[in-house]
Structures are given as C-alpha cells and as structure tokens.
C-alpha cells in the first residue's frame, strides 16, 4: 500500500526524500553497468511490465483480491539495480500522473518499496543462490522466500519512518504488529505469484532470469566418432 500525505511529519519526509535520491542514483549507476546503452528502452519496458502487473488483481479469498507489488520479481528477473530503478520510477509516475501515494510521502515510499524491499529480496535470493540453481523446486522456494521477505521488510521500513516522524499517539508495538501482520499475509500472495512467475520465465527463457546468470550449461560439442 502506498503511504499518503500526513502519515509522517514534514522533516522526516524530507530526510527520506534525500535517502530516496541517493538510492536512485546508486541504482542508476548499477543499471547502466548492467545494460549500457540498452538501459533506457529495457528498463522502460521492464517498468511498464511492473506497472501492468500491478493492475492485475488476483484472488486471495472470494471477494478479496490483491495485486502484485513486483519488487522481488523485478530484482530476480532483471537484477537488483534495474529492479530498484524500475520500481522507483513506477512510484514516481504513480504519484505524479495517477495521484497514487502522497507527494511528500514519495521519498519514504521509494525508500521502502524500491530500495529496502528490492535490496532485501535480492540479498535473500543471492544468499540462497545455490538452492535456486539446483532445481525448479529450489528456484520456486527461493523466489517465494525473497518475495515474502521483500514485502515484510518493506513494511518494517514504514515502521522505522513512523518511529522517527509518526504520531506519538499510537504505540509503536501496535503499529509494528499491525503492519507486519498485514504484510505477512500480502507477502504470502506475493510469494506464490513471484515463485510461479519466475519458474515460468526460467522454463522458457532461463537466460532472462538475472539470478540464474552464469549457470547455463556450456554447449557440448561432440566429435563424430
């Protein structure tokens, strides 16, 4: 969920605006290294993909639907820098063009979802890379875990911001329990969809899964004996 204006105070909003600018700058340098002159068109299309998947609602229970956030998915498929950059740009466009997420909360939203969430998801995936490359089930399990933790840790980013610049009327423990509980539920849905999506891409175009780079089997050339 995108934060609206007024959840955190003005100085905290400005601090996290600065954090977001620094994070996006780092992501930009990294993305350019990954994609060189292809960066803009490729990242543009990946960002459009992330945006489009956020429009796809999937059922959680009858009457209750959720939608993908896509941070861990983008990081596993396109790499952490391109992933963070795409999610960040999606958030900027949603705030400016679609009035979704407050303008003053934009820095905090980028910090949580594009930077903290994507980094957490990717670090989990990289730490378990040996499991992911072993089998299809392993890849699905790692993708699930990365997406689940991506969602939960991004919500902890909100708790941090709320602790610094939120409302003292609420106990931090209550806010933490509500946010983490809610996002654990969202994270399960996010995890299942991410796992199935990543395995589907890995089955068709394993070369497009950034996490699996360098594990392709070399072409075997046998001489006619």
């Amino acid at each position: 969920m995108h934060m609206s204006d007024g959840l955190i105070n003005a100085p905290t909003s400005l601090i996290f605006g600065g954090v977001a600018v620094i994070g996006m700058a780092v992501a930009m340098v990294g993305a350019r290294r990954d994609l060189d002159d292809r960066t803009a068109p490729m990242a543009g299309l990946v960002a459009a993909f992330v945006f489009a998947t956020q429009m796809l609602n999937f059922p959680i229970l009858p009457g209750v639907s959720g939608h993908l956030l896509g941070g861990a998915l983008a990081a596993i498929l396109a790499g952490p820098y391109v992933g963070a950059l795409c999610v960040g740009i999606v958030l900027v466009v949603q705030a400016l063009v679609f009035a979704d997420g407050g303008l003053t909360a934009l820095g905090a939203n980028i910090t949580n979802m594009a930077i903290i969430g994507t980094a957490a998801g990717y670090l989990v995936a990289v730490a378990l890379r040996s499991v992911a490359t072993r089998s299809k089930t392993g890849l699905a399990a790692v993708a699930f875990l990365a997406a689940f933790l991506n969602t939960v840790i991004a919500s902890l980013g909100f708790v941090l911001e709320f602790a610094i610049g939120g409302d003292a009327a609420f106990s931090l423990g209550g806010v933490t329990a509500t946010m983490v509980g809610l996002h654990a539920l969202i994270g399960i849905g996010e995890g299942i969809i991410t796992a199935l999506t990543v395995t589907a891409v890995a089955a068709a175009r394993p070369d497009l899964v950034h996490l699996l780079r360098g594990t392709e089997k070399p072409l075997e050339i046998r001489s006619a004996a």
Binding site: F49, T53, L68, L196, T197, A200, V201, A204, L208
Partner: peptide
Amino acid sequence: ARGIGALF
C-alpha cells in the same frame, strides 16, 4: 502467474 511470466 504463468501469464505474468509470459508477459515479462
């Protein structure tokens, strides 16, 4: 989910 994979 497989549709999302194909979309990517």
